[in-house]
Structure formats: structure tokens, C-alpha cells
């Protein structure tokens, strides 16, 4: 029971991180129907920027943790968003209206490009960050096993919930959100009634990148170890989460992320860690076969 609870806590934390990345996939897919393959790399860049920001702030003598966290959050979101914007502007916008495979190919190219760029700039070795948010609560102790809930885990889940609330509000109530939903329905029509489609799509990439940056920050704090290669697997898993929840659906992305996180935590907790990546993929395959629209996605009627 105690062990179960611990895995649950770990799974939810992991799920929050996947969910934040998944939102970027689901938003972009919803609006322009492409798999932004480079999104995992954006998340990796977010993690690197977070790490660098921590080190810079440390060098500048900012030692008060909440302040440092806030500043890093802002810096990482800002700079990563710029990367997200630039990727869209350079690699995807010129291909709008081209055949379906084209943007996916550039996205794969972009993913390779960004991964290797970071490798060249920062080296292939892992980077470490000493624990920044230490401490935690011990929820219960049973059978010589203590269930820990660290402050960091509370921070991660709380921040995710706060971002989700803010983000849902943004989509529901702002003109940007309305423009996004309009583009999702019909881009040509949205353009005809005066929505600036290019700007809306850019904004989508910016928001997605900013959320991915938060996920990057969380991973840097949570594991304390990052390298240039973390984007690939996290990206695929987050995409899996988006599909699992129903691509195009924001609550779906969060739910999917949560499920993937839980599956991974329980799988590695109860079975072997070696096949935990396979678990996520197998579930993806099963979901797509039996419920292709995902858990919260709307069914698509084949139009003849």
C-alpha cells in the first residue's frame, strides 16, 4: 500500500511534466494538423536554458530559492518561447499549404538540427544541477517503507495546475483564444473574417514552447541531470500522451500525460525498468486501435 502510494506520487509528478509538453503537441496539431516533431527538442532547450539561468543567478548571488525559481521560470519561458517562434517562422511557415508530408519532414529535420546544435554548443556530457528545492513530507510509514512527498513534487504539481487554469482561461476568454479556436475549425474562413492566421499560429507555437520550457525546468529540478538527448524520448512520450488523451483536446493532453506518467511509474515500480518505454508505446498502439480518437477526443465522421 505504501509502495503503491509512493508510485502514485511519482507517477503524478512525471505525468504533470509530460502533460505540459503534450499541450504543445496537441495545440499545434489542432490548429495546423501537423506533428511538431521538434517540440521535444524545444523542451530540451528549455531544460538547458533553465539550468544555465540557475547557474547564472547563482553566480550573481541570488540565493533566495523562491525568487530564483521565479526568475528562472520567467527567463526559461521567455527564451524558449523565442526558439519556438523561430522554428515555426523558419521551417514551418514557408511550407504552409504544401502537401501533408512536407512539414513533418522539416520537423524531423529541425529536431535533428536542434539536438545536434545543442550537442555542439554544450557538449554531449550530462549536465548536473545540485538539489535546489530540498526537503519534503513523510506521509506515512509502513513495513519499513516511508512514503515521501517532496516539496519539489508539490511545487511541480501545483505549478502545473496553476498553468492549466491560466491556460484554459486564456483559450476560453481572450481574443487570442478565440482566434485559435477559429483557426482550428477552418483556417481559410478564419482568415476571411479577419483573423490574422500567421500571428495566431505563431502564438500557438510560443505558448507551446513556453509550457515545454516549464516542463524542462521541472525536469532539471526533479532529476538534476540533463543532456542534449532528453528531448527525443520525452517528445515521443508526450506525443503519445496527446494522442492518448485525444489529439486536439487540451484536457485530454493533461489526462494523457498523467496516464503515461502513472503507467511508467507503476511499470518501473512493479515490473522492470528496462521495458518501461515499451509500455508507453504498447498502450499507444492499443489505444489507437480500439479508440482512435483518444479518450477525450471527438469522433471524426468520415465525410463521403
Amino acid at each position: 500500500m505504501a509502495y503503491f502510494l509512493q508510485q502514485l506520487i511519482n507517477g503524478v509528478t512525471l505525468g504533470a511534466i509530460y502533460g505540459l509538453i503534450a499541450i504543445g503537441y496537441t495545440m499545434v496539431y489542432g490548429i495546423i494538423g501537423m506533428i511538431n516533431f521538434a517540440h521535444g527538442e524545444i523542451y530540451m532547450i528549455g531544460a538547458f536554458i533553465s539550468l544555465i539561468a540557475f547557474l547564472v543567478l547563482g553566480a550573481m548571488g541570488v540565493t533566495y530559492v523562491p525568487l530564483a525559481l521565479l526568475l528562472v521560470l520567467i527567463l526559461a519561458m521567455g527564451f524558449t518561447a523565442l526558439w519556438g517562434w523561430a522554428v515555426e517562422r523558419l521551417a514551418y511557415r514557408p511550407l504552409r499549404g504544401s502537401f501533408r508530408l512536407a512539414p513533418l519532414i522539416t520537423a524531423i529535420g529541425m529536431s535533428i538540427l536542434l539536438g545536434n546544435l545543442v550537442q555542439i554548443l554544450q557538449g554531449a556530457r550530462v549536465k548536473t544541477l545540485p538539489p535546489t528545492v530540498p526537503g519534503g513530507l513523510i506521509l506515512m510509514e509502513a513495513e519499513g517503507f516511508a512514503v515521501r512527498l517532496s516539496f519539489l513534487q508539490i511545487f511541480i504539481v501545483a505549478l502545473t495546475i496553476a498553468l492549466m487554469i491560466g491556460f484554459t482561461w486564456l483559450i476560453k476568454n481572450t481574443s487570442l483564444g478565440r482566434a485559435q479556436r477559429a483557426c482550428e475549425q477552418d483556417m481559410t474562413m478564419a482568415a476571411l473574417i479577419g483573423v490574422n492566421v500567421d500571428r495566431t499560429i505563431s502564438a500557438t507555437f510560443v505558448i507551446g514552447a513556453a509550457l515545454a520550457a516549464v516542463a524542462g525546468l521541472m525536469v532539471t529540478l526533479y532529476y538534476g541531470v540533463i543532456d542534449f538527448y532528453i528531448g527525443f524520448l520525452a517528445g515521443i512520450k508526450a506525443f503519445t500522451a496527446a494522442v492518448l488523451g485525444g489529439i486536439g483536446s487540451l484536457p485530454g493532453a493533461m489526462l494523457g500525460g498523467l496516464l503515461i506518467g502513472l503507467i511508467e511509474a507503476f511499470w518501473s515500480g512493479y515490473f522492470t525498468t528496462e521495458y518501461k518505454d515499451v509500455a508507453a508505446f504498447s498502450i499507444l498502439v492499443l489505444v489507437l486501435i480500439f479508440r482512435p480518437t483518444g479518450l477525450l477526443g471527438r469522433p471524426e465522421v468520415e465525410k463521403v
Binding site: 494538423g33 515521443i236 515499451v278 499507444l284 498502439v285
Partner: peptide, 27 residues
């Protein structure tokens, strides 16, 4: 099982399958 899926989904399932094979070979 997967060929009934729409294009992009097929892409991602095949990607997942490729990774599964690799992980199996590894382990």
C-alpha cells in the same frame, strides 16, 4: 491492426513500433 489509422497516427504508431523493436533487441 494499425493500417486502418489515419496518416499521422500511422506515422506515430510505426515510430513507436520501431522503438519497441530496438528496446527489445537491447534487453
Amino acid at each position: 491492426p494499425v493500417l486502418r489509422l489515419r496518416g499521422d497516427y500511422l506515422a506515430i504508431v510505426t515510430l513507436g513500433f520501431g522503438e519497441i523493436i530496438r528496446v527489445i533487441l537491447l534487453n
